[in-house]
């Protein structure tokens, strides 16, 4: 049963939601509108006048091989971040779920990384993997491996993926653990009696019953990888080497603020806007319906 509060007038409810609406309007609708508007113009080099170009910015954008490469980079990056952060979180959650004693400490420790801001996390990982003074780099050197993410594309991608995924593990862990604990013990026991060993039980009972959680996290993590990893990338690689770690969000920034190509940057923002809308729609449409039982 859902309890609904009903208001007599219209003013009080309006007043109560006003702060949220104002914030959304100022920080989302206004800039989004600006982006859409600007994406149709090219400003002159001094920013004094704008010339209407229709959809030329978009045409130009999709003809640009660097932009298309950035799409691929983003896809690779998001898939890796999502897979790593969800995979590790699920593994830890399964372990924590089996543990009864000391699970409180274990859980608290696992939740800490979530409190670390992305940029700070980025700096942290950067220090560890710094090509000259990084601890991990030094140990890798002892093992005969020459780590250099400043020059090596794959290593740069690996580092930003790990740094981005690391901060997400806590969040995913909490949801997975809650999901696991919501599965009745007796169902697992019934499966054990029916002959299913750990892995079979996980595959046929636990994972399907966890699928609403998994789906929710999938969408949330993709959105995170797309939009909220800016800080990590900015601090660790600044999109390099070359453009190996320039994901779409980072390209908006580097083309717009560094490259001063405002028309293209605005068009890219609009593309991102469309992407995030699609993801959000998927999330809302399916999150309640695709419950597995």
């Amino acid at each position: 049963m859902e309890k609904r509060v009903t208001f007599k007038g219209i003013w009080l409810p309006l007043l109560l939601v006003a702060p949220q609406i104002v914030i959304t309007a100022v920080f989302f609708f206004y800039p989004a509108g600006q982006a859409v508007w600007q994406s149709l113009f090219i400003p002159d080099p001094f920013g004094l006048s704008m010339q209407y170009v229709g959809l030329d910015n978009f045409r130009f954008l999709f003809d640009d091989p660097f932009y298309r490469a950035s799409f691929v980079t983003t896809a690779v990056f998001s898939i890796l971040v999502t897979a790593v952060s969800m995979g590790v979180a699920l593994y830890l959650a399964v372990l924590a779920d089996r543990l009864i004693k000391g699970s409180g400490t274990y859980r608290t420790l696992l939740i800490w990384p979530y409190a670390v801001a992305p940029a700070v996390a980025g700096v942290l990982w950067l220090f560890m993997f710094n090509t000259r003074v990084g601890v991990v780099t030094w140990y890798l050197g002892l093992l005969g491996y020459d780590w250099n993410h400043v020059l090596n594309d794959g290593e740069a991608m690996g580092l930003v993926v790990v740094a981005s995924a690391w901060g997400r593990i806590s969040y995913n862990f909490l949801f997975f653990l809650a999901g696991l604990q919501a599965i009745p013990r007796s169902v697992i026991e019934a499966a054990a009696i029916d002959g299913a060993r750990f892995w079979t039980r996980f595959r046929t009972i636990v994972f399907p019953l966890l699928s609403p959680t998994t789906f929710f996290l999938l969408v949330v993590n993709i959105v995170y990888a797309f939009f909220e990893t800016f800080g990590v990338i900015h601090t660790i690689t600044s999109g390099g080497p070359q453009q190996a770690t320039t994901i779409l969000v980072y390209k908006v920034y580097s083309d717009g603020f560094v490259g001063q190509d405002l028309g293209s940057s605005a068009a890219q923002s609009v593309v991102l806007l469309v992407l995030v809308s699609i993801l959000t729609i998927i999330q809302f449409r399916y999150i309640e319906r695709r419950v597995h039982y």
């Binding site: 007796s186 169902v187 019934a190 009696i193 060993r197 046929t204």
Partner: peptide, 28 residues
């Protein structure tokens, strides 16, 4: 439990909620 050749009926039934009645019975 799986090596004891037993079957158990639980108080809360403990059926597999994501499977049909047929699959519940066929699982083992």
């Amino acid at each position: 439990p799986m090596d004891r050749d037993i079957a158990m009926v639980f108080q809360n039934y403990a059926l597999y909620p994501h499977m049909s009645v047929f699959d519940n019975m066929a699982y083992g």
